[in-house]
Nucleic acid binder design. Structure first.
Length: 541
DNA sequence: CGCTTTTGACCCGCGC
DNA sequence: GCGCGGGTCAAAAGCG
């Protein structure tokens, strides 16, 4: 093998030049292809949006007719609808949207308003699971929520790599699940999220004298979803509900709100690294350790299970089964209650302090015990044990009730005498209007999520999307969130939610996504558990 | 009677 | 190996 030495001859230089040009050419070609692909996707999205709209309009028409009939027939029903309107505001519609538009659906308005943020009821192949894991796994499909649970993709950078933990990481890291913890002020034993839960255990956990109750989803016998409910030791009015797992069954519409919310939150968790560009997140070197704070309001804190706070800053590879990455949705701050904000700041450990930065009450869970402020429509059927709804309006964008909101507004009206609607509109509007950065932050997070989920874990792609300012993508993301098996029935909800948001406030779209949107039914379990959270010391262990 | 809740026992992983 | 703590099981009790 002779080695060519000495200065390159003119031929060689020419050759290099040609090679360079070829490279440039191919790069250009590639770029062109990508652009085309982008265009195609946009077109597709537009098409789907159109379809969605026409369906939605039809729905509104039908619904409106229905409402009108019922309204004429029963004045009490009117009241219900009022409540319904209120709730629908929290769910699918901008708080600013006049009820009539929201309900009846001004078609022109709708068409105009359906911004790129609209989330569509597509059967997204991207499963945005509550499981951290499932988002990145190529194996991940909605048919295999359980398998997804076993996959682990707690990558600090969560970058382009698609990791099938079963193959790649199972040996290194034990199975981890994303947990979504919801903190909300609630005087009742549990927040009613629309699902049916069966209590299977109760324990006194360390560092909290209040017993922790364990529930499993009983909607389907095989559903792996677990829920833990515990009062906050430092403020008994705060109820901490932690969800873990992915429903492997269709959910009642009333349950999709929480599912959407938790899946969205889990998504945030998953997108930890990408959201870490947020100024407050510089310390998020390891996955999920830093609180993700949305400055203008709703904030997520990534952390490990609160009961294991010692591990909060453990390196990711210090993983143990105990280290469930947990994202906390803090709904404890009521916009009308500035003092609670302050208190919360003081109470929280430093790592949590930032999450108290809530400027509105996005809560959407109900305290199941307190039926007083539950829309009468819910209790109409008399059977509070069954999730209302599916049979009535399967994909209803206007949801009947949002107990979470109810809870918060209940509180607000107690303290402020503020009417529900006004309070709702006020809080949401505030949050949205006071901090434009919120939108971008959420968009970033969501984009990264989608990048992970839809682009085969290609975060780069998500960033590109984000960078290109394609709000478009946001809708996708949201839909992704709602396509979680957790909320298989929730597409309409989230979709409507967003749509309305985008319709009235272009900045609101992303925001809502983070809100726990919804309607919840009353479960017997909820009402029977009043005493569970009164610190009972009779628990075992 | 069937379902849910209660609650003591048990299991498992971790740290020492 | 042992103790601790979180989580789950399952028999008994409760409830409608």
């Amino acid at each position: 093998m002779s080695k060519i030495s000495g200065p390159s001859g003119p031929d060689e230089i020419e050759e290099k030049r040609v090679t360079k040009e070829e490279k440039i050419k191919s790069a250009k070609t590639e770029m062109g292809e990508v652009k085309e692909e982008n265009e195609r996707l946009k077109m597709m999205l537009e098409r789907v949006e159109k379809d969605y709209h026409s369906l939605q309009l039809r729905f509104f028409d039908i619904h409106h007719e229905d409402v009108s009939k019922k309204g004429l027939a029963d004045s009490s029903t009117c009241h219900d609808h009022e409540t319904e309107e209120l709730v629908s505001l929290c769910l699918g519609r901008s708080p600013m949207v006049p009820k009539k538009e929201a309900r009846i659906g001004n078609s022109n308005k709708l068409k105009e308003d359906v911004g790129p943020n609209l989330t569509l009821g597509l059967d997204s192949k991207h499963l945005l699971s509550m499981e951290v894991v499932s988002d990145f796994s190529p194996m991940n499909s909605s048919e295999q929520p359980k398998e997804a649970e076993e996959e682990v993709t707690l990558s600090t950078n969560q970058s382009a790599k698609v990791i099938n933990v079963n193959d790649d990481m199972s040996d290194q890291m034990p199975a981890k699940r994303a947990r979504v913890s919801v903190r909300a002020r609630c005087d009742t034993p549990t927040m009613n999220d629309g699902c049916q839960w069966r209590k299977y255990g109760q324990k006194i956990a360390k560092r909290n004298p209040c017993p922790r109750a364990y529930y499993r989803c009983t909607v389907a016998p095989t559903c792996p979803v677990r829920r833990q409910v515990q009062r906050c030791a430092e403020d008994l009015s705060i109820l901490i509900t932690t969800y873990e797992g992915t429903h492997n069954h269709p959910l009642p519409v009333s349950a999709t709100a929480m599912a959407s919310t938790t899946s969205a939150a889990a998504s945030m968790l998953l997108s930890g690294s990408s959201t870490s560009h947020h100024p407050t997140n510089h310390n998020s070197a390891s996955f999920g350790n830093a609180p993700t704070t949305l400055q203008s309001g709703l904030s997520f804190s990534h952390q490990f299970d609160e009961s294991r706070t010692k591990q909060v800053f453990s390196p990711p590879n210090h993983a143990s089964l105990h280290m469930f990455p947990t994202i906390t949705l803090d709904m404890t701050y009521s916009a009308s209650n500035s003092s609670s904000l302050t208190q919360f700041h003081h109470r929280l450990p430093s790592t949590m302090a930032s999450i108290s930065n809530l400027k509105f009450s996005p809560a959407s869970l109900s305290c199941s015990q307190d039926n007083n402020f539950i829309p009468s429509i819910w209790s109409k059927g008399g059977d509070t044990t069954t999730p209302p709804i599916i049979d009535k309006i399967p994909t209803r964008p206007v949801i009947k009730g949002n107990p979470y909101f109810q809870e918060n507004f209940y509180q607000q009206s107690i303290t402020n005498q503020t009417p529900f609607k006004e309070a709702l509109a006020e809080t949401i509007t505030k949050a949205i209007s006071t901090d434009p950065s919120l939108r971008s932050v959420i968009a970033a997070a969501v984009s990264s999520i989608v990048g992970n989920g839809s682009n085969s874990g290609n975060q780069e792609g998500a960033e590109n999307v984000l960078g290109s300012g394609l709000n478009l993508k946001l809708g996708d993301h949201l839909q992704l969130a709602s396509s979680n098996p957790l909320n298989q029935n929730g597409k309409g909800c989230l979709t409507g939610y967003f749509k309305s948001l985008s319709s009235k406030n272009s900045e609101a779209g992303n925001f809502i996504f983070l809100q726990p949107p919804l309607p919840f039914s009353f479960s017997k379990s909820g009402t029977n558990q009043l005493n569970h959270y009164v610190p009972e010391m009779n628990t075992h262990h």
